[in-house]
């Protein structure tokens, strides 16, 4: 549905994105994850047809976003990061305007506007001037204009930024439900959000793609192991040594916390050593205070990947 190949964009001399390549399948929700200035907005603007890449190609629904811009734009719903709306219009007249320029006419248009007001929970606000709406409600209007013509592809640039936690949850649900029958790309720097909403994640940093995968695979593949963390009372050296002898243990690190010490054991993927370790420690007479598995969160991976980039540079 979306094919991006070697997309590169210079702003003057400044290289904003470099050789960005990825595909999105029909019906997929893709998360675009990256720190500030990573190039998320730049990539999305190119996809939405707002500006051309310096080199590389992007196709949406089979149409090149530069060569067949109009056809591509007909199939895209886009919500920019800043949600720029006409503040002097009412919600309904604004949506009416967007529905018209996106090709809806007559009865079908009115029907669809009512539908969208309902989907975005704007029903009580149809008559309100947009300038008087709060940020969260403007965000809803932003989504409403993006979906009004039932586009095949939805591009949402940071759809949950600046809104309260309750609305964030609602917006995520909305995006998930929208993603059931269309392709969605959303950007975010909130990691749990991407984890929750998206089926696949692209991590981008300083204009380059550093990882592409399903959220759960990213955790497994990138770390290559799971961790077990425990709090034990006893002689550090001996504990570390005997832990290292266990099969499936890759590495052991520790830090002291008062009279107890906290040990972190890196295990090879797929192995569950909790029982064995507990056995070992109790068997040797050390005091096992606490033991738990610790899965690497997307956040750890994100930090690790983006830090690695920086230390390489």
């Amino acid at each position: 549905m979306i094919e991006v190949e070697n997309l590169t964009k210079y702003y003057g001399d400044f290289l904003a994105i470099e050789n960005v390549t990825f595909q999105v399948q029909k019906g997929e929700i893709l998360g675009f994850l990256g720190p500030n200035a990573a190039g998320k907005t730049t990539t999305m603007r190119i996809l939405a047809g707002y500006m051309p890449p310096s080199s590389g190609t992007a196709k949406v629904a089979g149409f090149d976003v530069v060569e067949q811009s109009l056809e591509a734009r007909k199939r895209i719903g886009y919500m920019p990061e800043t949600v720029p709306l006409y503040t002097d219009m009412t919600v309904e007249s604004y949506l009416d305007f967007h529905a018209t320029i996106k090709g809806l006419r007559g009865k079908k248009k009115q029907q669809r506007i009512d539908e969208v007001l309902d989907i975005c929970r704007l029903g009580d606000y149809y008559d309100v001037i947009i300038g008087k709406l709060s940020k969260g409600y403007r965000q809803r209007v932003g989504i409403a204009q993006a979906i009004v013509h039932e586009p095949e592809v939805l591009i949402l640039d940071e759809p949950t930024i600046g809104i309260d936690p309750k609305q964030v949850v609602e917006t995520r649900q909305l995006i998930k439900s929208l993603g059931r029958d269309r392709t969605v790309i959303l950007s975010s720097h909130i990691l749990p959000e991407v984890n929750m909403v998206c089926e696949r994640v692209i991590i981008i940093n300083e204009g380059r793609v550093v990882a592409v995968d399903r959220p759960e695979n990213l955790s497994a593949a990138l770390k290559g192991s799971e961790q077990i963390q425990m709090e034990v009372r006893g002689a550090i050296k001996e504990i570390v040594a005997s832990l290292r002898e266990l099969k499936g243990v890759q590495d052991v690190t520790w830090e002291s916390a008062g009279e107890n010490n906290i040990f972190t054991v890196d295990c090879s993927p797929g192995s569950d050593l909790r029982e064995e370790i507990a056995h070992l420690i109790v068997g040797k007479g050390w005091g096992l205070i606490n033991l738990q598995t610790k899965r690497m969160s997307l956040e750890d991976i994100f930090l690790k990947l983006t830090m690695k980039e920086e230390s390489e540079a």
Binding site: A48, G49, Y50, L70, K74, P84, L85, H98, K102, Q145
Partner: peptide, 9 residues
Amino acid sequence: TIELLLTAP
């Protein structure tokens, strides 16, 4: 707002 105007079909 030009961003939404220019990305509309």
